[in-house]
Amino acid sequence: MINSAFEANLVEIENLTFKRGERVIFDNISLSIPKGKVTAIMGPSGIGKTTLLRLIGGQLKPESGNILFAGKNIPLLSRADLYEVRKQMSMLFQSGALFTDMSVFDNIAFPIREHTKLSENIIEKIVLMKLEAVGLRGARHLQPSELSGGMARRVALARAIALDPELILYDEPFAGQDPISMGVIVRLIRSLSDALGLTSVVVSHDVPEVMSIADYIYIVAEKKVIGHGTPEQIRQDSSPLVQQFIQGDADGAVPFHYEAPAYRDELIRRVSK
């Protein structure tokens, strides 16, 4: 166990290797998601943070390694068992992924109607409760096309907590948000975690926001976990890669230039041709 202060881990990733075609995305990484906390996974874009969430959700299968959710090894589950496990988790997609042919109300009622036999009367009460939590009770009659980006994400969040899952996976929840809706979402993630005891995994590259809400942070780069700890530990991490990432320096351990021959040589070669 990586941090003994956290007694129980809801998700354990052990020696995970994942390849896309020939390209290795994760090379033997291990990490733990403690129960009831907000864990952030940060890293430069394109290193497979979203892929990691899809691996936890069982939408992708790893090359090797274990992904344990409440003790069950996700990659080995049968389809029926996987669907059973997924009822305890939910994912907030970057785009919101609201169903465009349904109103806000029906979007949130959808998972409840699918998985329970509750009466419409009770479903209405639950939906309004979830909408109240994200501050959009007044928007229940709107269609997804009438919502702003920030509102759509809040509705998606209300839908994600509709069935009171144990685990929420947030895929880039802050990307493309204006400062106000960013603030709203930051507050929501934290308060949902505190009030409902949800376990949250936030995948993001927005350093200040993540630092402000995460209990524990993993920084993933170059197919590995390059640093982990509480926000305070991360700030004091000695690794140049971690420092470059949290400071946002243009050049450093991750070079500014994509791999290329020296510019001078290339110019000379072109001239001499």
């Binding site: 939408q59 669907y83 939910s90 994912m91 997609f93 992924a97 609201l98 959808f110 998972p111 998985h115």
Partner: peptide
């Protein structure tokens, strides 16, 4: 728009 993925994650085939 990830609607199919989100159905899968809601345990709906």
């Amino acid at each position: 728009t990830e609607q199919l993925s989100s159905l899968e994650m809601m345990a709906i085939d």
